[in-house]
Amino acid sequence: MSLLIDVTTHAIDEGYERAAARRKAASSEHVIDERERRSRRATALLVGIVLGVAGVLFATSAVATHRNADAAKRDRQELVKQINDRTAQSDQLQKQLDELRAKVTSARDVALSASGRGSALQREIAELETVAGTQAVEGSGVEVTLDNAKDASNPDTASLGVIYDRDIQAVVDALFASGAEAIAVNGERLTTRTAIREAGDAILVDYRPLAPPYHIDAIGPPDLKTTFLETQTGTLYENWRQVYGLGFSVDSRERLTLPSAAEPVVRYAEPLPDPQSSQPLESP
């Protein structure tokens, strides 16, 4: 504590008191000659210069602080603008892709419907696309809505009322386990290769950021709702809704339309030759 007392009691530089004492002692023989007067004027000028430097220092520091804040703000705005631009670009490309894909599909259908064998293939393709998730589908099912707890007043439980990627993963898994055939999260259709993950504070489904509330549409058997609510996940989230105020609701839907997912591109995996056929696929 003596250090603190020292700091507060000797707040002023000791040099001042000593100089004052020296002046007092010297004042007895009070003779100010020309040399001393000139040196006093020089030190007074020095005081002015030092104070001027101090002023420049204060102003520089203040200006630099404000300019840095402005620069940070500008950088942030520039980044936000870039993100918006790229998102718009990506949406535009996605739209173009959808159009081209529709063209390809219709051209394929025209070509296939010309022959009986082609029609059979067409039916098979439609079936496979439905399973793979690259075909828009409709049917009855449930809509599960997950949302962050509205009441975050209690700081102890506030973080427990937040939806994370694992919550959506758990609900999707439980829905599939309950017999769901096609699922979309906020309009993003799930395929075997769709990732549900978290980056920063945002949940990404198929690498697109989603905003709460999260609507999980699932097409499945008529008893999907009861089956889902009886699963471990269903009871758990119902429980959390009551305890933490988590947004969780399950509604039956007569008619759900799920969009198609982007067609996954397979570059490296190759199908095994059919063991039934005597001829391997790749033999010359």
Binding site: A44, G48, G52, G55, L57, A59, T60
Partner: peptide
């Protein structure tokens, strides 16, 4: 008085020229 003036002049100089700090 002169001291306050010097300080004020310093502040004005700093704001007007805002020297870049290395």
């Amino acid at each position: 008085m002169i001291a306050a003036l010097a300080l004020a002049i310093g502040v004005v100089l700093g704001v007007v020229f805002h020297p870049t700090v290395p």
